[in-house]
Structure formats: structure tokens, C-alpha cells
Amino acid sequence: MAAVAAVPVIAAAASPLQGGRELLWITGGMAGVVALSLLFVQPLLMAAAPPLLTARGGVRWHRWGGIAIVTMVGLHIGALYAYSPEDITDALLLVAPTPFSLYGVISLWCLVLTAALAATRRVLKLGYKPWRILHSGLAVALVGAGAIHAIQIEGAMEEYSKLAICIAALTATTAGVLEVNVLAPMRRRRVLRDTRSSGRG
């Protein structure tokens, strides 16, 4: 798991393209790569919680993962804005000539909504069920759009490790969403039924 997440980051950092780049450009680009890798780790921390983590520990790490993703995306956009304000303004306003900007912006707004919901969940008195459904839907859109964004970009990322981390992130997110929304409720239902029938018998 660590290898799948770390290899694309290391490969991008080692790209010969980094040689001629200014520091802000490198920072902005690499922050995006790290964010993409975290999108693979993030659902695993929670739903498919590795055997090493207890459920409560998973929640805590998942929360820190979320904060890390928001930070990395902020750095990705912030540093690239500082490097070339016009290109980023075009991208954010959806007038850039680059097709991948649209997917980056979709992913960004999904992230903003996700973070806002996570921060205000208690205030909004969102119960667990609407929360998991909203959070799952946003997560799938966020990772899907983020993966398209990454794949369409010609840059420092090495092609095969980029494709691998995108597929891994999509798979992990899909698995996590299925676990939280389908498999876990089914298990709970079975446990309920079993206890009911055993109580009766």
C-alpha cells in the first residue's frame, strides 16, 4: 500500500522535467501528486480499515488524511497561482484552453463541499445515514474527476505509476463506498435478524 502511494510521488520528483523548473512550479506540481496519492490512502484508512488500525483509530487517521488532502490541494493551487496567476485564474474560471482544468475544478468543488460538510456536520445535525451517503457521493465524484485531471495532464508524473495510482484510488474509493453503504448495513441487518431470531428461540 505504501509502495503504491509512494512510487508515483518519487517518480514525479525524479522526473528530468523538474530540472528546469522554478521552486514554486515544483512545489505546486508535487503537492498535486501527493494529494492524488492521499486519495488512494484515504478511503482505506476508514472503510477498509487495515487490520493494524482499530475502528476509532481509523476515524482519527481518516480525519487527518482529509486535512492533509485539503492542505495539499490548497498548496497545489496556491503555489501554481503564485507561479503563473493568469493560467490558474483561467483554469478556475473555466476559460483555460486545457481540457483537464475542468476536471480539476470539479474535483476542487467536491473537496470544498466535503470539507464544509465534515466541518459543519454537527451544526447541521446530519445523522450518520445522510452523512455517509453525501460523503460517499462527493468522494466518488472527487476522486473520479481528480483522476481524469491527472491522466490528461502531460507533466512530471511517470505515465505508468500515474495510471496505477489513479486506478488504485478509484478502486479504493469504490470499495470504501460499497463497504460503508452496502456491505456494513447488510452485516448490521444480519446481526439484528440473528439476535432477534435467537432471542425468540
Binding site: 528546469g20 512550479w25 493560467d87 486545457t98 483537464f100 495532464i153 507533466g155
Partner: peptide, 8 residues
């Protein structure tokens, strides 16, 4: 030429 902002 190298790609800048995702396109060469």
C-alpha cells in the same frame, strides 16, 4: 520545449 501547465 517542455510542457507547462499540463500541455507542451
Amino acid at each position: 520545449i517542455v510542457p507547462q501547465f499540463g500541455q507542451p
